[in-house]
Amino acid sequence: MDWNRLRIFQTVAERGSFTRAGDILELSQSAVSRQIAALEKSLGAVLFHRHSRGLLLTEQGEALYRTAREVSAKLAMTEAQIADSRDRPSGPLKITTTVAFASLILLTSDDLLDLSMREADVAIRMIEPTEPDLVRRHLMTVHSYIYAAPDYLARFGPIETADDLARQRLIIYGQGPLTAIVNPDWLIAISGDPGADGRIVLEANNIYCMREAVESGLGIAALPDYVIWGSQRLQRVLPEYQGPPFDAFFTYAEELRYSKRIGVFRDFLLDEVAKWRS
């Protein structure tokens, strides 16, 4: 099979349309369509169901996509290993972690990317990875507490007992079941029924956004300690209450265990965590 066609096929499968794949590959929609048609002809199989909402893989298409994805990942891994064989660490390093943790040093997403398939090179995760083929290193134990801005407390405080929480405006994550962050909305359980009386004033899609909203005086929130490091505008309230602690891990694929790029970044990250903790 023609590898260039397989690369185009993989992109179409991931993007769900010829047009979006063409934007990524810098090809016209018609050129992408012709390449897929040629691939289907050479294989004697239909790879996509075409309908008005986009493209769906057929059973044969699913099988080919799994193989193309694995081959692509292995090629990327080999390329990285060759690059790391040089004396001086060099080359790009794709990192995945939560938005809040990386707000100080990275551009990120709360999505969990697949390291074994090289969707990213390394991950900083707020849960322990379960994949057997990943190397992991414990970074730190994270604790979360309730925070408010002094301006907010001047208007709506004081907050001296748990009963006072029943009158507070809450900022929550509110995104339903999560895999990247451990129980960010534990404050709700000790705040009465904030949903029933309209006290939830903001549902944010990442923890860093929640911190910014708390600092602005919009409401109170439960925040992990790493996100408030260096902030001069947050005050802990009801310090006897804290959320379930969880561990953060630095992790990467076993094949990259001896990568110089990853070693350099690991040392940098450990130094940064030590500074934040001091």
Rank of each mutant, 00 (worst) to 15 (best):
R211I: 01
R211Q: 13
I190Q: 01
I207H: 01
S216D: 09
P184E: 12
I200A: 06
R211L: 15
M210R: 10
G192I: 14
A196V: 07
V201I: 11
A196E: 09
N206K: 11
S191Y: 06
D185Y: 05
G195K: 11
D193S: 10
R211Y: 07
I207E: 06
N206S: 15
A196H: 05
V201M: 07
A204F: 08
E212G: 08
R199Y: 03
I188E: 15
C209H: 13
E215V: 14
G217F: 01
N206H: 15
S216A: 13
A196S: 07
I200H: 04
Y208N: 13
A196D: 03
I207L: 08
V214T: 11
S216C: 06
P194M: 02
P194H: 05
P184T: 13
P194D: 02
A204V: 11
E203T: 13
A196K: 09
E212K: 14
S191H: 10
A213F: 07
C209D: 14
D197C: 03
G192E: 13
A213M: 14
I188F: 15
E212W: 02
E212C: 10
I188G: 06
G198S: 03
A204D: 08
P184F: 15
N205F: 09
C209F: 10
A213T: 02
G192T: 14
I200K: 11
L202R: 09
I188V: 15
G198N: 13
R211K: 15
I200F: 04
V214H: 12
P184L: 14
I207A: 02
E215W: 02
R199H: 04
A196M: 07
E215T: 10
N206M: 09
E212H: 07
S216V: 03
G195P: 00
C209V: 08
R199N: 03
G195W: 09
I200P: 03
S216E: 12
A204M: 09
D197N: 13
L202V: 00
I188H: 13
A196P: 00
C209S: 12
G217R: 06
E212V: 06
G192L: 08
A189Q: 15
Y208E: 14
L202E: 08
C209L: 12
P184V: 12
V201H: 05
R211T: 09
P194T: 02
